[in-house]
Design a protein around this nucleic acid. Structure first.
Lengths: 111, 111
DNA sequence: CATCCTGTTCGTATGTTCGCGAACATCGGC
DNA sequence: GCCGATGTTCGCGAACATACGAACAGGATG
């Protein structure tokens, strides 16, 4: 047997899955629900929108929408600011660009 | 109140989430784990590979890898053929192209 | 200050994902 | 016909995801 058996696993990790794989998977997870895809597409066209705009369009409870928005926020893809009684959501352009770059690289696409 | 209140929800569905949102979310879900991202990237470079090749590289149990491969197969992104004692996995180019098109459209990227 | 409007958070229920080892299936070779 | 090599499927527990309504928070407005 190998004396350094316990070192093999870390070696495997290094030589296979890297930070970009994890990052891309994290982004893909954020995109892994139709509602979140819709929200991102919606926001990528308009500059910003209110939570209520989305709630009017989507056939889900407000609490559910709020949860999806939080996931997008946690993934760094959107940001929300309290504005009067409403909440204004915008795309986070910096991370959106990073996402485009990562997916583009992975899929062999370009801007 | 509206007399046709019960028709509003289907209307919402039609006017918001469409088939492409669902399709993209389905693909994103397949990409939502680092191991699956790695496998796809690996396969997109080489034409095909054996399950054992991946097992040698990845720090996970074979049964776990098999599960991830099945998910990619269910998503239509890869195909596996039994070849002697091994299993040969290849990218499904047709659906891979469709995935590239969907993501490209969504992200505003071109081939 | 009470109220309304807009969203978020909480609690809960239900199902899905992830990882493993054990057991099983399949095929070539002895 | 049995064995070994290679993967898949099964069964399980822990963790996470999805959805909802009820309850809560914060700011404008009467």
């Amino acid at each position: 047997m190998f004396a350094n058996m316990e070192t093999l696993l870390p070696l495997k990790i290094e030589t296979s899955i890297g930070a970009d794989h994890v990052r891309l998977a994290r982004l893909a997870k954020a995109l892994s629900h139709p509602v979140r895809v819709f929200v991102l597409e919606f926001l990528s066209r308009r500059a910003c929108c209110y939570s209520g705009d989305l709630s009017d369009l989507l056939p889900i409870a407000k609490s559910t929408l709020s949860q999806h928005l939080r996931e997008l926020k946690d993934a760094g893809l959107i940001q929300g600011e309290l504005e009067a009684p409403k909440v204004r959501y915008c795309l986070r352009r910096d991370n959106w660009e990073q996402a485009r770059a990562l997916f583009g690289d992975f899929l062999g696409l370009e801007a």
